[in-house]
Write a protein that binds this DNA or RNA. Structure first.
Length: 735
DNA sequence: AGCACGCCGACT
DNA sequence: GTCGGCGTGCTC
């Protein structure tokens, strides 16, 4: 074991968060400091003219750098490693796979405070428990329901409930502390992972089969794809498997695509499991994130529930990784270190010898392809649990039909019928704002962004025009700035306009709009969701966020207002995305006793996507898409890496990529196809011209071999300094 | 990425 | 005469 004694020959290999594809060698702090240089500790190191936090990756006996050029470590931050050997291995693998600098990859494993060198020993983890008076109050305090709920939670809990778990209840906790009902005490190091299975439902045969299949593989690497429509009981399967893992004293990492989905799942887990549960996502403060990370890293919580950024949290007692809604594109990081949380989760499971459970109603083509290749095992949950039936899907041909702000008469009729029966209606449109185009009625001039290759979107409530790509915004004018006489008009409809229209059309009904604009303030979304589930909303209108996992038990009609843009996109993944969207929105309708109806407004009722999807179902449609992908030589049958470049001058970005192309043609094997450079689909954004070069190969090894050499030489290529470039391995979209 | 060095315009 | 613009070069 390469450690300590600070011998004269030890060289410390340190990862530092700089965009350079290498580790840096240092000498130990002092010959006799007595520090154990264990890989996985953090260090303060002198770097250039400043000091930085580094992670010790390995201790070697020598260095390729001359001895006298090596600096000494300033100080070790940790006495015990924060990252295990396996964590370091995973991060090194990810750095190589995504061709992203090792230091930046290593430091993304840490929450911000720890990345900046904050001591990890700073706090003994504290938690809370009821005092004797608190126990009494839990029986008598019936007039303050919120306080009572918290008391009950602490009472139901174990000896101590950790501070991180109570993050959301801080203000209330303070009140209880003041009353002397609750006291604060250190969390014991080995918090028992006791499990309460009392409320578990009896699984149906398909659920039982899935539970058994995964349970049989505990302690071994295996990937499962759990496919089940909304309401088929995936969460129950997760929880019953989790219970087995927790009972073994092992930890579970649960990943979700969106923060908005964490509270409801957290609540279900808390009702079910008596183990420590920590959440990790971007809505938490830096301090809360540090506490949650350390709690899990120390093995003091059995469950971590988080988003993509939680993936690398150290897991001292690894048992299981669950990744729900695995098809969701937000698992792919879209900037910097562009990793896929789904693919890295699988790599992590392999490294840790634990099962990985991917779940979705609409699995990605990649995962279904992996099932075909027998790399993943498919577990299917047919049908819906309980009485709910599959919704009735209807195509509504809107050719030559008058649309009132995007709503056809046929749809309005269906809405009236449902509303009269006191049921809820859900309308989906992936376009926020009032209208996507502002045009001059006299001269045809269209308001465009000065910095992007995009139209400005009208936001009527704010009286502004906004660019959805760079954030630029302008006051709305009635008169055309070009011809100075014409009147500006709104063309097309976004959610804001449709909301207005609905309020006018259905004055006796309540409309709730859910999109990024209407839910900006913290907690608004939760308030709306509660309002909807309390039956205080009749028509629910929204964008993307509606399609993701929320329960709306009283919705019996769901409609997609405009699917045509998804049918005719240049992106080869758009038909996959649209099919997923349709099935996901359909999953929002009719979860209760009532059978739901789904209406798709389209001008292409004969489109093969729609007929196959509606008649044969999602799985059959995926088969069709996979055949198309195979014939076209597209992923998952080939592998992609996308080199993007942007610059103030279009010629600089294009020229640089042309130089890269020339370089690849001298250096590559014929196994890699080079396509481009071409302008990006959004050719200008925030004032920068954007170009891209696509590398495609059926042979992943050949592609990665080329990328290895490319990233080494790229900075030396012509024009590299004038552009900003980035490499995206397995890009989720080519924009 | 930081951070410093370096060589040309408008200011107390 | 200086403050400061950001080009480019380096980091064990």
């Amino acid at each position: 074991m390469p450690n300590c004694d600070a011998s004269h020959t030890s060289v410390l290999q340190v990862a530092i968060a700089v965009p350079l594809p290498r580790l840096f060698d240092y000498l130990p702090a002092e010959a006799d400091s007595g520090q154990d240089y264990l890989p996985g500790i953090r260090l303060w190191v002198p770097f250039g003219r400043s000091r930085k936090v580094g992670v010790l990756v390995a201790v070697q006996s020598g260095s390729a750098i001359e001895r006298q050029r090596l600096k000494r470590v300033e100080q070790a931050i940790d006495t015990q490693p924060l990252l295990s050997t396996q964590d370091l291995q995973l991060l090194q693998w990810a750095s190589r796979y995504y061709h992203h600098p090792i230091g930046e990859v290593m430091l993304t494993a840490f929450p911000v405070q720890l990345r900046h060198g904050k001591m990890a020993e700073f706090s003994q983890a504290f938690g809370y428990a009821l005092t004797q008076e608190g126990e009494r109050a839990a029986e008598t305090c019936t007039r303050a329901p919120k306080q009572l709920a918290l008391l009950k939670r602490l009472q139901a809990g174990r000896q101590v409930v950790t501070a991180a778990e109570l993050a959301q209840d801080r203000p209330l906790l303070k009140v209880l502390l003041q009353k002397g009902w609750v006291h604060r005490l250190p969390v014991p190091d080995n918090l028992a992972f006791s499990v309460d299975m009392a409320p578990a439902l009896a699984p149906n045969p398909a659920q039982q089969q899935a539970i058994d299949a995964v349970s049989a593989q505990l302690g071994r690497f295996s990937v499962f794809l759990l496919q089940g429509v909304t309401g088929s009981g995936k969460t129950e399967v997760y929880m019953q498997i989790m219970a087995k893992v927790l009972a073994l004293g092992l930890q579970v990492l649960v990943l979700l695509p969106e923060i908005t989905l964490t509270p409801q799942l957290e609540q279900r887990f808390r009702q079910r499991f008596a183990t420590g549960i920590v959440c990790f996502h971007s809505k938490l403060s830096d301090g809360e994130r540090t506490r949650a990370w350390l709690t899990f890293q120390r093995g003091q919580a059995g469950i971590m529930l988080g988003t993509r950024s939680a993936l690398f949290t150290p897991m001292p007692k690894p048992g299981l990784i669950i990744l729900d809604e695995e098809h969701d594109s937000s698992f792919k990081q879209q900037d910097g270190f562009r990793f896929s949380a789904r693919d890295v989760a699988v790599a992590r499971g392999k490294l840790l010898h634990i099962p990985v459970l991917l779940g979705s109603a609409t699995p990605s083509l990649e995962s279904l392809f992996n099932v075909r290749q027998q790399r993943y095992r498919l577990l299917e949950l047919p049908g819906r649990a309980g009485a709910a039936e599959q919704p009735n899907m209807q195509i509504l041909d809107i050719r030559n039909h008058y649309l009132q702000a995007g709503l056809s008469e046929g749809l309005l009729q269906a809405m009236r019928a449902k509303l009269q029966q006191g049921q809820q209606v859900l309308l989906f449109l992936n376009r926020r704002g009032y209208a996507p185009v502002q045009i001059c009625h006299a001269c045809g001039w269209v308001a465009r962004c000065r910095f992007c290759d995009a139209n400005l979107v009208i936001h009527a409530a704010e009286n502004r025009l906004r660019c959805h790509h760079c954030g630029a915004s302008y006051v709305l004018t009635r008169q055309c700035p070009a011809c100075k006489t014409g009147e500006m008009r709104a063309l097309g409809a976004g959610t804001e306009r449709i909301e207005q229209e609905l309020v006018a059309l259905f004055p006796e009904h309540t409309v709730v709009r859910l999109d990024r604009d209407s839910t900006q303030r913290k907690g608004t979304l939760e308030t709306y969701l509660q309002q909807i589930n309390a039956g205080a909303a009749d028509i629910i209108l929204g964008t993307q966020m509606l399609a993701k996992g929320h329960h709306f038990p009283n919705v019996t009609l769901a409609a997609l207002l405009d699917i045509d843009s998804g049918l005719f996109s240049i992106d080869f993944r758009s038909s996959e995305k649209l099919a997923q969207l349709i099935v996901q929105v359909a999953g929002r309708a009719g979860r209760g006793e009532q059978r739901g109806t789904v209406i798709l407004q389209t001008r292409h009722p004969q489109h093969p996507l729609l007929s196959i999807l509606l008649q044969a179902g999602y799985s059959a449609y995926v088969e069709e898409l996979l055949n198309e992908r195979r014939q076209a030589g597209l992923p998952p049958y080939t592998h992609h890496a996308l080199l993007r470049a942007d610059a103030k001058q279009a010629a600089a970005a294009q020229g640089f990529l042309a130089a890269v192309r020339a370089w690849t043609q001298q250096n590559q094997l014929s196994a890699v196809q080079v396509l481009g450079p071409v302008p990006a689909p959004m050719s200008r954004r925030a004032g920068q011209f954007r170009f891209q070069l696509l590398l495609q190969s059926p042979n992943r090894k050949a592609l990665h071999g080329l990328l290895d050499r490319l990233v080494q030489h790229i900075d030396g290529l012509e024009g590299a300094k004038q552009v900003h470039w980035s490499l995206d391995v397995d890009p989720a979209d080519l924009s």
